[in-house]
Design a protein around this nucleic acid. Structure first.
Lengths: 255, 255
DNA sequence: ACCGTTGCACGTTTGTGCACGTTTACGTAC
DNA sequence: GTACGTAAACGTGCACAAACGTGCAACGGT
């Protein structure tokens, strides 16, 4: 996206690597256009990166070296940032607690980072999240059933809500579609809202983890608001206004 | 799901390999349409892959090679055999059906091999089975909730059983711990038995897939028998006595 | 003046689609 | 069951375009 006027060679290679990790592949012609350099320079970059074992050079561009199937392109997206946010959120979790973990790529990252032997009980509606902790020492996993929504990667709907209401948790990590400065957490449709509301109400505290692109001044699309957030974990370069609002509302903000 | 407009040659070959591992076969004409290239290019790709020993070239497309690249460590166990069994079992499945798929590595292989666009509804208690089909075209996935057993890789227990009883399926694939010549399917503990019995009773027909090590003359450990099998899919080099017993019991035997 | 980076020109390699003749699979008639 | 006809799939050769590597000259900065 960003195409600064002056890009250092080494910096450009770094950016190429990031794009590579995000998309699983890069195309030489596209990169040349994006960085305003000739394809020759891009080819030199890719050759250097390949020599370091950081990518696989192929005709027309380059592919990821460690090729884990590019299953969800969303999952590779911004992983670094999500890991940093999750690390911050980890400090809010105490040993022996029961956690509601909603579907979502950020929450999957969080689940993978949960420490072993902390006697946590993870309750989730996402097979992703369940697999991330299943079988590791010191974990109980409870799966909420229901029809899975491919767009969400987890179960939502009345069945799932009913099962969620049978459980009491200490902490709740709802997936976040958008957060605005006025009315809190937002989701894309009614079903999601009902589910998130249910797990929030069944939990002692609620931690919303948001990447900066989730923060909007006011929600533009048709969405449904959710209240009840007690902790907000956001990236450092976030919209200061939104964060200030949350501070004013008594929500603890972690960065 | 649609392939992007710009697909690098080598990337395409890799995607073909992934499809191959998932479906067990690929058809040249389909690939050409999917990747927007001529069939000539696809044929060249398949020829290259076959030259590397990664697939077996056949008239109209390609099949899985006899040897499998080491993809998963623990799941790679006997994968070739499981894939062959699953391929046989696939022929019992009709379009539009509702399937109960129990936890288990063989069933996970089966799930991955289910063909796209066959309008199947997959009901499962195993997160990895759910992930194997979630998001693919022509699939509905219903997850059964409950506490996950790490040894099994899925949910069992009264909660799960209750949810299973709310559903009617055409076909049922219970995981198999042991099969003996006297009393049919066996499991390791009571909870599992109750669950498998429930999904068998909720289904029209039941398909038991068994590797030869599951076939025993008589169960030695503490197990609980299950009845209701209608189809038995077994490896070719199996214990003839057990299979004969099943034939005598009116079960259709597929090899 | 040193070094790294860049863009251009050249010849080479790789991938692609089309045309042609051949082989394979399958249904039909005998 | 065998023979035969057709259509699809196949391999090969060829032409063209895109991507590639290399050498070389120009530029800019510690």
């Amino acid at each position: 996206m960003n195409a600064p006027d002056t890009t250092l060679p080494r910096e450009r290679q770094q950016l190429i690597l990031e794009r590579l990790q995000r998309d699983g592949k890069v195309i030489a012609a596209d990169l040349a256009q994006e960085f305003r350099v000739s394809e020759d320079s891009i080819r030199r970059d890719l050759r250097d990166l390949a020599a370091q074992g950081l990518c696989r050079r192929v005709y027309g561009g380059a592919l990821l070296a460690v090729n884990i199937p590019p299953l969800g392109e969303r999952h590779a997206e911004r992983t670094e940032l999500k890991r940093a946010l999750a690390r911050t959120a980890l400090e809010l979790i105490g040993a022996g607690q029961i956690l509601f973990i909603d579907a979502g790529s950020t929450n999957t990252v969080l689940a993978k980072m949960l420490p072993d032997h902390s006697d946590l009980t993870v309750v989730t509606n996402a097979p992703d999240v369940a697999l991330a902790v299943l079988g590791r020492p010191g974990f109980d996993v409870i799966m909420l059933g229901g029809k899975l929504d491919p767009a969400i990667g987890g179960a939502i709907g009345s069945r799932t809500v009913r099962q969620a209401q049978d459980i009491r948790a200490d902490l709740c990590f709802p997936g976040v579609c958008a957060i605005d400065s006025q009315r809190g957490l937002w989701t894309y449709d009614e079903e999601e809202t009902v589910f998130k509301q249910a797990i929030i109400e069944a939990s002692g505290e609620t931690v919303a983890i948001a990447t900066p692109d989730k923060l909007v001044a006011s929600a533009t699309h048709h969405t449904v608001p959710i209240s009840g957030i007690s902790h907000l974990v956001v990236a450092a370069d976030t919209d200061a206004v939104v964060v200030a609002r949350y501070r004013a509302a008594g929500v603890t903000v972690h960065m």
